[in-house]
Amino acid sequence: MKPFELVNASSLSSALGALGQAKGAVAKAGGVDLLDLMKEGISAPPRLINLRTIAGLDKIAAASGEQGAVLGPLATLAQLAESKALAGVPAYAALAEAAAAAATPQIRNMATLAGNLCQRPRCWYFRDADYHCLRKGGNKCFAHSGDNAFHAIFENDKCAVVHPSAAAVALSALGAKLELQRAGKDGKVATRELAMADFFVAPSKDVQRENVLAAGELISAVKLPAPQAGQRSAYIKQKQKQSFDWPLGEVAVSLTVTAGKIAAASVVLGSVAPIPWRAKKAEAALVGKAADEALIKAAAEAALAGADPLDDNGYKVPLVKALVRRALTQALVSK
């Protein structure tokens, strides 16, 4: 880790100001992924803007009426996992489940929601500074010609990383929106709001970044839509070992069931693509139908249609199909 300067920010606006002031300054929340990247020599920012010193950024505001829950960017995974505002609401259960299943107890106490969304891929070629891969500005994806057992089965033709954020998978299924802020030229704070799908960047668009955050821009809030009547969600992941391990596959689903039929469905796959992977064909297969075993099976088949595994990760196709079936079943039986 190279030496760096530090600014302990007192407020979000002062943090935004500080970020704008120094070239290459990087915001630090929990610091879990950032310190890892810095220790590995993947990142060497000259200045860190510390968001942990800002009070109130970890607040979780429960949904009320037409207003959905609003999550502070510095809410920890442990807070999300234990929050009654999430775990106690069937529509939001997937997020609490994703947070509870992530990493280790220690990491969940440290890692923040915004940090989790912005963490960089765990691809072992990307994480080794001596591999000058596409994502680091090189001209080759080493996973294509190397060991790709834990890599992408969708959108993997350019760079085969999988997106590492469990929260991103769940939030994508829940239709969350991200509020982003940056210091404007006039000194005022500029705010924009994005759907999850518009936040993440596929390699075909820009292989060197995972999201659209501009320099000096921060996630200032995560907004969930208000729970709908009959809406329930679920998140499932499968790891090789059941203690700390990165998932082989993840699925988050959100279903709104009215009058015995699925009125709205979202199915998002994780650990299969460089971005949270929306399974639109599966969603289309579900909407307007009454759920039964055959439908669930058909949706799972549809979810993996078009998967294009590499040499070592073909197992992910049947594995994730099973997870889709299970997640749908879990969501349908939940109250």
């Binding site: 072992w124 080493f142 010609s145 834990f150 070992k241 059941q242 203690s243 391990d245």
Partner: peptide, 30 residues
């Protein structure tokens, strides 16, 4: 039997999982 495996990369000769995260060792839940 179930988890551990050193992975060598044939392209640059590195151990790709020379850490305790991607080199998978059974933990308490297992």
């Amino acid at each position: 039997a179930l988890f551990e495996e050193r992975v060598m990369d044939s392209q640059q000769g590195h151990v790709t999982n020379a850490n305790l995260e991607q080199y998978k060792i059974a933990g308490a839940v297992d």
